[in-house]
């Protein structure tokens, strides 16, 4: 009995120490946040940094309030986020389908190998102007930018993981007389879910790059347009506001993918 209460005491102690540590971590994270923005404001007010270029948190905040009030921020944000989400889903989906086709036909994969390497090393944003001319200066070409930037690397990474699945799993399926399609559905694809999810995480970042560059080029609307417009009229408060908004939403998307990962891969390991 005495033993038990002692164990319980030690266990509580342990839980307390864990809580204490996580509180300290949070505190320091908060301190960095506050120091960064307070320092920025301070430096800018005293003109230790050029307020024209670096603006100040208070100015950005005021602009933020204005833009919310006239609704223009939501409009731009809406465009950019939907373009990014579409580009990101399209890129990952197409990449996975391409990887599946390559897995299906080893001959095709041998034939296409050098082309994949070339396409992968080429900077995809350089295709921007061609896309805009071909697809028109519209949402379509921006989504295409968001997708094209991630599709080849997804193909390569997912295809590699398809090939690394333990061949004995396939042997098990073959002894049951499974077709190639059944082998793919029962073993290859589920075994590679963790890899596909982790490419999703990379693709979130890549799609933001593609979409922002696309908006630079199309220059009609969206957060990328806000940046290029702010740059042209030398309004860096606008540029920094878009940057901060992008940072927040890119993080949210990343967290959503993280959540998806935890939902999908419960029993892996």
């Amino acid at each position: 009995m005495k033993q038990n209460s002692k164990l319980e005491f030690l266990h509580n102690e342990y839980i307390q120490s864990l809580k204490r540590e996580s509180r300290w971590v949070r505190l320091y994270q908060l301190i960095i946040f506050v120091v960064f923005f307070a320092g920025w404001e301070l430096f800018s007010r005293n003109e230790w940094i050029d307020p024209l270029i670096f603006s100040a948190p208070s100015k950005i905040w005021n602009l933020f309030i204005d833009k919310i009030a006239d609704g223009s921020l939501f409009l731009d944000l809406g465009y950019t986020v939907s373009e990014t989400v579409l580009g990101f889903i399209l890129g990952t989906l197409l990449g996975t389908i391409l990887a599946a086709i390559l897995w299906w036909s080893p001959f095709l994969s041998k034939v296409l190998d050098p082309y994949l390497v070339v396409l992968n090393s080429m900077p995809k944003v350089a295709l921007g102007p061609i896309l805009i001319v071909a697809l028109g200066p519209s949402m379509t070409s921006i989504v295409a930018m968001g997708a094209i930037i991630s599709v080849i690397i997804t193909t390569i990474v997912v295809y590699t993981s398809f090939r690394e699945v333990d061949p004995n799993y396939l042997k098990v399926l073959q002894t049951f007389g499974a077709t190639r399609f059944q082998s793919f559905r029962e073993a290859i694809l589920p075994a590679c879910f963790p890899t596909i999810i982790s490419t999703l995480k990379v693709n979130v970042g890549l799609s933001w790059v593609g979409v922002i560059v696309g908006e630079f080029l199309v220059s009609k609307r969206g957060l990328g347009y806000m940046i290029i417009y702010g740059f042209q009229v030398f309004n860096f408060t606008l540029v920094l506001l878009s940057l901060l908004v992008i940072a927040v939403f890119a993080t949210i998307m990343y967290q959503l993918v993280d959540l998806l990962e935890k939902k999908l891969i419960k029993n892996g390991s």
Binding site: D166, N168, K171, T175, A187
Partner: peptide, 12 residues
């Protein structure tokens, strides 16, 4: 039927 050196049960 074929049984391998390890169980090769599908973990998912």
């Amino acid at each position: 039927g074929y049984m391998l050196q390890q169980d090769y049960l599908f973990p998912w």
